[in-house]
Design a binder for these strands. Structure first.
Lengths: 160, 160
DNA sequence: CAAATAGTTTAGCCTAGACTAACAATTTTA
DNA sequence: TAAAATTGTTAGTCTAGGCTAAACTATTTG
């Protein structure tokens, strides 16, 4: 037996007291986060493009860059990726359009985002903070939790 | 004026009706998420190492790898980074230890994680789902929202 | 105590997502 | 309409975080 494996004394608990989850479940938690990270930037771009089209009538690379806070080169490269993924269509030097798949993704992302944002507001979080937190949280909230959030929003607005 | 900038007719709103935030604020939201992404893996490793030490008496690379669901090579590389960042100490082929800074980070991360997890449980989310969501959400929740969550947990456990 | 097994590290590769600099196209304006 | 300003693209670089394969170290076991 590995001499490092198990000390005889019970270790002092430095945490909440919850046991570690089973290895497989634990790994699946991190795996879920890694997968979310792969898709979330894509979703953010698509959602933003949808918003720009809805509010401004068009989505230009320069606007995306300034709103994302990144360089135009970064946006240009990302648009190429979105094209390859079949989410947008674009002609050089022309405004972008979402494909059907892109519109679907934008709609779903936007709905998810709104639920998280309104949930945080209903909970009593300040608007500016709620916007920042919602942007980060939206990609990590399961459908189940989203349902619970929605129920909470409904309940809170009834009692107001 | 750019001919693409503003169509004459009001565009049909495809979203919740919220206006786009001012460009600077919008960019800051995404910026916050990007910064969180840089630190969150580090925090996850440190938190896990702290948990392993607390529950098992030691943190070995092989355990970290299986719990993270990544290869041992990936863990080895990450440990070198944690070392450079002054968060862990390690001798080759030996178990890891957290530095004072590492312990602090582990404690803070763990506390944050527990609040989010218990908040989701209090909200009525199933335990397995709550664990998965908490893992992704914890790095994107501001201190303000964390306070609100804690208040909610307290209120809910009182009324039980 | 030597061989087998388990654990760790290193080397080298890949992709995503950021950047700057240089260049090209378009649009605005003098 | 020519020049200036804006916008978009391309090329090349960097870092992080994955991977596999191979080498090395430690531990266990026959």
């Amino acid at each position: 037996m590995n001499q490092h494996t198990q000390p005889t004394e019970t270790p002092i608990s430095l945490d909440s007291g919850d046991a570690l989850p089973p290895v497989k479940q634990h790994a699946r938690q991190y795996e879920t986060v890694r997968v979310a990270h792969e898709t979330e930037l894509i979703e953010d771009y698509v959602e933003l493009i949808g918003d720009l089209i809805a509010h401004r009538g068009e989505a230009r690379a320069a606007d995306i860059a300034s709103r994302m806070g990144v360089s135009q080169a970064t946006v240009s490269k990302m648009i190429r990726r979105l094209n390859e993924l079949g989410l947008v269509t674009s002609q050089p030097y022309r405004s972008l359009f979402l494909t059907t798949a892109g519109k679907d993704m934008a709609r779903i992302s936007r709905a998810r985002h709104d639920i998280v944002l309104n949930f945080l507001r209903a909970l009593g979080v300040d608007d500016t903070t709620a916007r920042i937190d919602a942007e980060g949280m939206e990609h990590h909230v399961s459908d189940e939790t989203l349902d619970v959030m929605q129920a909470f929003i409904r309940k809170t607005s009834d009692n107001s």
